[in-house]
């Protein structure tokens, strides 16, 4: 049997990280908020580094709820877009190695998004992970949880519905 030798792990990692950076780097608002995405296999953790610009209550101080909402929603959008890319790559429909800033797959569109504000957003870095509870041909449901110092004490959670991009990823 003539099996192809697997690629070196570093080559795969570099390619996947580059694809993620291309995806994330294409959205101006992600850059505006300074969000970063940390990848472990197909799992993403979004990081929202604190900055004074995001304060909503100067007395406490605390992060503005609108900034928290944007953080959770973008975590969901990127998580969903990434999972579409990942699946398309696995099935061979799309090769992330071919992905460039000019040749980006369309992003899912938010239909609705609900944020549950659990605790004050402290003036510290925040983290979030999205969980795709259902991903169909046309619609997807995504849950997001955001936390700061303590993973067991989330400061906000969100749930949203998304319209999947119509063309194949």
């Amino acid at each position: 049997m003539n099996r192809k030798k697997p690629e070196p792990v570093q080559v795969i990692k570099t390619r996947r990280d580059a694809a993620l950076q291309t995806l994330v780097g294409s959205v101006p608002f992600i850059d505006f908020l300074g969000l970063k995405f940390d990848r472990r296999g197909d799992e993403l953790t979004a990081i929202f580094p604190f900055d004074d610009r995001f304060i909503g209550n100067p007395v406490l101080p605390a992060i503005h709820g609108g900034a928290t909402a944007a953080f959770l929603e973008l975590t969901a959008v990127v998580g969903l877009a990434w999972s579409i890319l990942w699946d398309a790559t696995e099935t061979g429909d799309f090769n992330i190695a071919d992905m460039t800033a000019e040749n980006l797959p369309r992003l899912p569109k938010t239909i609705d998004f609900t944020v549950d504000y659990l605790r004050t957003g402290l003036p510290r870095d925040a983290y979030a992970r999205a969980r795709i509870t259902r991903s169909g041909r046309r619609y997807a449901s995504v849950q997001v949880e955001g936390w700061q110092d303590n993973r067991d004490r989330p400061f906000a959670q969100g749930i949203g519905h998304f319209l999947m991009p119509s063309s194949k990823a």
Partner: peptide, 11 residues
């Protein structure tokens, strides 16, 4: 905006 806003609004 949650508690945040609340406090903001306290202010």
């Amino acid at each position: 905006m949650a508690r945040i806003h609340g406090l903001l609004c306290a202010y």
